[in-house]
């Protein structure tokens, strides 16, 4: 049945479909609708005192046997970072939804942005491999919320589900029943019955070993290869090839919808699994293009990642400030192609 749905609601529905039975969260614009929607759905629902409690609570509930999720936006995401690192250390499957808004700090709460891209990858201290998804439509919010739970169960690690204020508040008609979905069941037994010790310290079989550098390296390689091999099965992306296009636009989230009218003259590569970066696919596709333009609503965060992977010059258009005008975006891309604009304009338009 087709219905009119908001992106935030679709994420919540996807999570319920994936088997989530525990939600803890703290209200924040523009993510609050996820909370509102889940408050009366018969799951264990906690409106916590802050985002730190929410993130730590889902670590506990996930260990006790429930698929768990929290949702927030920039400021809350910053508070949750320590718990995300804990989730990686304890190997806890959990999903954190970040509906991005303009930062830093309280910034512009009601306006969308894509400024938390690198935070999603590197937010918590120390080294870890983070799996990140970023949909661009209401249907994808539903579909990839399920995949986020699947990936977190398989990799036994926190998965970050990025959105932006636009996608979160986007209303579209979708037929959820028609979306095919496979659901990965729980991969770890819930608490009770054993004598396992889950700790944020580096530990070997539940016994902390905090002075063993060799073991740290061994453990780190194991964790990294686990996350990489699991994420290889979730290598979602979209590639729209323009006839005779010499330029490849890389965009994600709402920006990838805004640049659509230009596709044909240009090609579009849209990563859905943002991190780990789709290196193989990107190298293969980018090799056929003379120029690459990364269009994003931040100061070139993903552009740096693309440059790192492709090891060549990449142009960027940063649409900062929270407003998104398709005509202006088009002009900027055209202008960049004609050499009229600076290759990296960061000033407000």
């Amino acid at each position: 049945m087709k219905e009119l749905l908001m992106g935030n609601h679709a994420v919540a529905l996807g999570a319920l479909k994936a088997g989530m039975t525990f939600f803890a969260g703290y209200p924040i614009t523009p993510a609050s609708e996820i909370m509102h929607f889940l408050a009366n759905k018969g799951i264990e629902f906690v409106h916590t005192e802050d985002e730190i409690a929410a993130a730590n609570m889902i670590v506990g509930s996930s260990l006790s046997g429930r698929k768990s999720m929290t949702s927030t936006s920039g400021p809350g995401m910053s508070l949750m970072q320590e718990a995300i690192g804990l989730g990686h250390m304890m190997e806890v499957p959990m999903v954190i939804v970040n509906v991005q808004r303009v930062g830093p700090s309280t910034g512009m709460p009601t306006l969308p942005a894509q400024g938390d891209i690198l935070q999603a990858k590197h937010g918590s201290h120390g080294d870890y491999t983070q799996i990140v998804f970023y949909p661009n439509s209401v249907e994808e919010c539903y579909r990839y919320a399920i995949e986020a739970f699947n990936a977190s169960e398989e990799s036994r690690s926190p998965v970050i589900f990025l959105m932006d204020g636009f996608v979160g508040h986007l209303m579209e008609t979708v037929d959820l029943d028609a979306i095919p979905c496979a659901i990965v069941p729980r991969t770890i037994p819930g608490l009770g019955g054993g004598n396992r010790h889950f700790t944020g310290l580096l530990s070997k079989n539940g016994i902390p070993c905090t002075m063993n550098s060799d073991y740290y390296r061994e453990w780190f390689q194991k964790m990294k290869s686990k996350a990489t091999s699991v994420s290889d099965r979730y290598n979602f992306f979209e590639y729209l090839r323009g006839d005779d296009a010499k330029t490849l636009i890389i965009a994600f989230g709402i920006v990838s919808r805004v640049v659509l009218p230009l596709i044909g003259k240009y090609s579009l590569f849209r990563p859905i699994r943002m991190f780990p970066v789709l290196e193989k696919e990107l190298k293969e596709i980018a090799s056929g293009y003379e120029r690459i333009i990364v269009v994003e609503m931040n100061d070139g965060q993903y552009k740096g990642e693309i440059e790192r992977v492709l090891k060549r010059d990449v142009e960027g258009i940063s649409l900062i400030g929270g407003d998104l005008d398709p005509t202006v975006v088009g002009e900027k891309i055209e202008g960049l192609s004609n050499g009229k604009l600076e290759s990296y304009p960061t000033e407000a338009r």
Binding site: M57, V59, S64, N195
Partner: peptide, 26 residues
């Protein structure tokens, strides 16, 4: 870590939040 039961050693200050998650989870 010295208890021979299931045990959690969380973040600084967040033991109660995690414990509440465990209790509400089961």
């Amino acid at each position: 870590g010295y208890f021979d039961v299931e045990s959690l050693h969380g973040l600084h200050g967040r033991a109660l939040a995690m414990a509440e998650g465990v209790k509400r989870g089961n």
